[in-house]
Nucleic acid binder design. Sequence first.
DNA 1: TTAGCCAATATTGTTGACAATATGATCGCT
DNA 2: AGCGATCATATTGTCAACAATATTGGCTAA
Lengths: 226, 226
Amino acid sequence: MAELLSTTYTRADEAFDCLQTAIVKGELAPGEKIGELELCSRFNLTRGPLREALGRLESRGLLVRRPHAGVKVVSVSASELMELYRIREVMEGLAARQAAERMTDQEIADLQATLDTHERMIDEAQGQAYYQAEGDYDFHHRIATGSRNTKLAQMLLGDLYYMVRMYRYRLSTSTGRPQRALGEHRRIVEAIAQRDGELAEFLMKRHINAARQNIERKIEEGELTI
Amino acid sequence: MAELLSTTYTRADEAFDCLQTAIVKGELAPGEKIGELELCSRFNLTRGPLREALGRLESRGLLVRRPHAGVKVVSVSASELMELYRIREVMEGLAARQAAERMTDQEIADLQATLDTHERMIDEAQGQAYYQAEGDYDFHHRIATGSRNTKLAQMLLGDLYYMVRMYRYRLSTSTGRPQRALGEHRRIVEAIAQRDGELAEFLMKRHINAARQNIERKIEEGELTI
DNA sequence: TTAGCCAATATTGTTGACAATATGATCGCT
DNA sequence: AGCGATCATATTGTCAACAATATTGGCTAA
């Protein structure tokens, strides 16, 4: 189960994907100190590719490595998670502004269709979890790529989202407010459709700020523990 | 020339540093396809640590790797360089705002002293190049760390700065305007000293925006070619 | 009893050899 | 003569053994 992609898929890539999803899904607990050979047997890998993957993961900030002492998954504190949302706020605001300037009409139409799908899922109620977990990231993913800013998309999709998703899985109890979030999404897309970059940036920043405050409040109320 | 740091320094770290500085200084030209064994002989390394370093560099976006085809240094177009400045604008704006809220009085005093040093260097005229190359990054570096936002500092210092510095070296003819930049720096520090985060963010964004427009203009005038 | 030191051990870092694959040139065919 | 396929080569990907080092447990001494 490897040669599915047209481009050749090396063992190191496989190791990287396995470890990344394992960390994101919480199968490797934060703060857990884990040995290389244990990881090898667990994912049927050999140490060479594994070490290369570990280097990449470390450079992405998902784990830390002390020489001769082993690797351990990063444990992000509540305050650090809030800092991630501050970064998302400004970066996704920029992405929304540039997306308003550069997305094609077709992409915008697809984005609106995506929101329709999300709405149906929310109406069918059982889709709440899906909406929060996947739908939300689908929306933000499209805007990041729509910005046509390669490095921006790379940083958002490659670095930040995995850190945030890691905690979305952990505090799996959906953070609520799907209807309100959908409304915010709709207004952002409207601004993009009207090519109003300034408004799109403002709305996106406020949207992420609201999500941050929502999580912050739940943490303070003790509903979520990190 | 290796065991200088208190923490143990592995060959992979050495390889990573060597390659990174080589790329930044332009010793490895962008677009250049380079073999692993050539890199090994050039930096007195063996392939294991080298490959680990290559993985890290790739994940940071400084080079691309195609399986069985070799690595090549990324070549950033002029428009992509401008996109990097857009990202810097929002991220460093956030850094300035958080620095205004969180830097200690001592750190702010040090920052002001740093600017005095820069001013002396500019007055002594020959320091122009230094100021632009190192002094500017010293200033931005201090603010990034002063934000107390670990991930933000990591992304700015680890990813963006190396990409930008890479082109600062290339278009080595100092991009000019040191006096104006120094004045902008001073005003940013004043806002931080007054704990006015909103103003600090505004001034920082305008500062970076000005730097971007300056480069953009020089490129259009043909003074700089990328 | 506890604190500090030392050694054994297990883990990581490194190395060199082996296997798989993309590239480039040569040869044959149209 | 131009184009395509095939094969040799060189480079990368992978593996397993060796060396170096941090940790852990035990021991000694205060």
